[in-house]
C-alpha cells in the first residue's frame, strides 16, 4: 500500500492527474473488449484503450522518477497504478463513470479526446521537456482518438431517430461531468500557465462545432460536478480499482 495524497509538489500532482485520467479511461474502454457492437469497432476501441494505458505508463514513470527525486521513495509505474487507493487518484469523474451504452461511451471518449488533444498540444510547447516529449508522442494517437470519436458523435447524432435519442440521453446523463476537465485545479494552473485559456476555448469550440454538425444541442449551463482532481471520487472508482488491482493485491509482485 502506498499513498500519494499528501504530496504537495504541483508538478507531481499534475503528472499523476494526467496518468490517472489516461489509466482510468483506458481501463473503462478495455471493458468493451469482446463486447463491441461489431468486430471492427471492438478493435478500434481496444486500440484506443491500449494507447491510453501506454500514455498512463509514460506519465507514471515520470511521476515515479519525480517522487524519488523529492523524497527518496522508490516507486514504479506499477506501484502507482496498482497500490494506491481511490483518494490518491486525481482523474476527472467522467473517466470513472460506467460505460453505459455505445452512445455514452462515445460521448465520454469525445469529451476526453477533445480535451486531451488541446491539452497535449499546449503541453508539447511546455518548458518541461519531459512533459513536452510525452505530449508530442501522444498527440498522434490523440489525433486519431478525436477523429474516431467525433465521427461517431456525428453518425449517432445525425443518424436514425433511435441513435439521435441515444446520443441526447447520453448528453443528459453525462453533461454535468464535462466541465471538470476545464475547471483547472491549482496544480494545473501552475504548470499550464496562460495556456489554460486557449485549452478551455479550443475545447469548447471543438465540442460546439461537432455538436452543431451532428444536430445536437449543448445543454444550458447548470450544476457541474467536480472533485476528482483533488481525490474526491464517485463510488465507481472503488469498483474499478477492486477489479484492476485484485491480482497485485492478492499475489503481490506477481509477474507474467
Amino acid at each position: 500500500m502506498i499513498t500519494t495524497k499528501d504530496i504537495d509538489n504541483p508538478l507531481i500532482k499534475f503528472v499523476l492527474h494526467l496518468g490517472d485520467n489516461a489509466l482510468i479511461m483506458g481501463h473503462r474502454n478495455s471493458e468493451w473488449c469482446g463486447h463491441g457492437p461489431i468486430l471492427e469497432q471492438d478493435i478500434a476501441l481496444t486500440n484506443i484503450a491500449l494507447d491510453q494505458v501506454g500514455q498512463a505508463r509514460n506519465f507514471y514513470q515520470y511521476a515515479a522518477e519525480l517522487i524519488s527525486e523529492t523524497n527518496g521513495e522508490q516507486l514504479t509505474e506499477d506501484s502507482l497504478a496498482y497500490l494506491r487507493d481511490s483518494w490518491d487518484f486525481k482523474n476527472c469523474l467522467l473517466a470513472e463513470l460506467p460505460n453505459g451504452d455505445w452512445a455514452q461511451t462515445i460521448l465520454k471518449q469525445f469529451i476526453v479526446s477533445a480535451y486531451q488533444y488541446h491539452l497535449y498540444q499546449a503541453l508539447a510547447n511546455n518548458q518541461n521537456e519531459q512533459l513536452a516529449a510525452i505530449a508530442s508522442k501522444s498527440l498522434k494517437e490523440l489525433n486519431y482518438h478525436l477523429r474516431w470519436s467525433s465521427d461517431w458523435v456525428l453518425r449517432l447524432g445525425d443518424g436514425t431517430t433511435e441513435s439521435k435519442k441515444r446520443m441526447e440521453d447520453a448528453i443528459a446523463i453525462l453533461w454535468s461531468y464535462t466541465n471538470e476537465w476545464i475547471d483547472f485545479a491549482d496544480y494545473e494552473m501552475i504548470i499550464l500557465g496562460d495556456s489554460h485559456h486557449s485549452i478551455q476555448q479550443d475545447w469548447k469550440a471543438k465540442i460546439k462545432s461537432v455538436f452543431d454538425e451532428a444536430g445536437l444541442m449543448i445543454p444550458v449551463d447548470g450544476w457541474m460536478q467536480k472533485g476528482g482532481k483533488v481525490g474526491n471520487h464517485t463510488e465507481h472508482l472503488g469498483y474499478i480499482l477492486t477489479d484492476m488491482q485484485f491480482l497485485q493485491r492478492a499475489y503481490p509482485n506477481a509477474e507474467w
Binding site: L39, E40, A44, N47, Y144, W148, D151, R155
Partner: peptide, 20 residues
C-alpha cells in the same frame, strides 16, 4: 475484408484491423 457503413469508416476500420 471488413464491414463498415461507408468509405470513411472503412478506412478507419482498416487502419485498426490491418495496420496495428
Amino acid at each position: 475484408s471488413l464491414h463498415a457503413a461507408d468509405a470513411v469508416m472503412a478506412l478507419e476500420n482498416a487502419r485498426d484491423v490491418y495496420t496495428r
